[in-house]
Every structure is written in structure tokens, then in C-alpha cells.
Amino acid sequence: MNGEVRDLAVDTRTTLLDALREHLQLTGSKKGCDHGQCGACTVMVDGRRIYSCLTLAVMHEGDEVTTIEGLGQPGNLHPMQAAFVKHDGYQCGYCTPGQICASVAMLEEIKAGMPSHATADLTAAPRLTPEEIRERMSGNICRCGAYSNIVDAITEVAGRQA
């Protein structure tokens, strides 16, 4: 869990999200819909983004889980966190931890050459266009509507990485 081994005994019904929030006090990951429709609970498991509300804690024994707390902390922000602040990529902030975890993992997917619905040529390396970013981030909803600023933040970080 964010680089530390954590031992937990939980009811089989405990989702990974509830284990994070209720048992490990990692309340950065948010519960929005609890049904995989909003993306607020997005975390990374073994480097891949998933909805932590739609998986059981008992299914992740031995897995490496990274939450928003593991990406960066005040005073030592992850570049994506800093870019969201700079570009005003949020208003109320509730979806933000999920947006940031999803963005960081999404850029790794592009780097690994994984295609998306917005990729014109399936056999070529995907290009980092606003259309690609929007399609790949469609699993994270922002009801304040900060989408254009979120795309700006991601684009800046991606540009720096490239």
C-alpha cells in the first residue's frame, strides 16, 4: 500500500475502496457512485488504473496499490497534482484524486503504445491529442465541468514527459 506492507483482516464483502477509506484511513480515494460509473475511486493496482469500488479487498493480497496519497503529498506534489493546481483542473475537488490517478496511469498506457477508441490507425503508436485524452479519460466524471482545464493539465505533463 503506497510502498508499505499493510496487514488487514476484513469481511469478504469489503471492497478495496472501503478497505482504503474505512480500514487504512486513506480517504483521498473518494466514493461517488460506488458502481463504477463515476471514476472518483480510481487507484492504481500493479501500475494499472482500476475502480476500487468494483473489486474486493481479499482479491488483492500481495498486490501493489497506489492511491493519491502515494503519488504525492503537500510540499512534494506529483507533477500531475501540480499541473491540476496550476491549470485549475477542478472546482469542488471531489473527483480530483480519481482524475489524477487515472491521468498518471493513462499516460503510461499511451507510452506503452496501447490504442484507444480515438486511435485512427490501430497498428501505429497512438498520438497524444486532446481527442485521445478525452476518450481515455471518459471513465472519470467531473460534475463541476472542469474538463477543458483537466485536458490542459494532462497535456502539459505529457509534453514534459515526451
Binding site: I50, L54, P115, L122
Partner: peptide, 29 residues
């Protein structure tokens, strides 16, 4: 499955269908 080189090259209809469904987080699971 959608990212597999052989699927993208030889079974484009399958790669496209997979990528048209759900979201990145769901397809990862």
C-alpha cells in the same frame, strides 16, 4: 486483448469492439 499486436493487425474488428466498450479502468479488469 485490444492492445495485442496480432489482434490489432489481423482482427481489427475485435480490437475496435473492445475499445468501444466501457472505460480504461473497466477494461483493465
Amino acid at each position: 486483448l485490444a492492445a495485442d499486436e496480432r489482434v490489432r493487425r489481423d482482427y481489427g474488428v475485435l480490437a475496435r469492439a473492445l475499445l468501444a466498450g466501457a472505460t480504461g479502468q473497466l477494461r483493465n479488469k
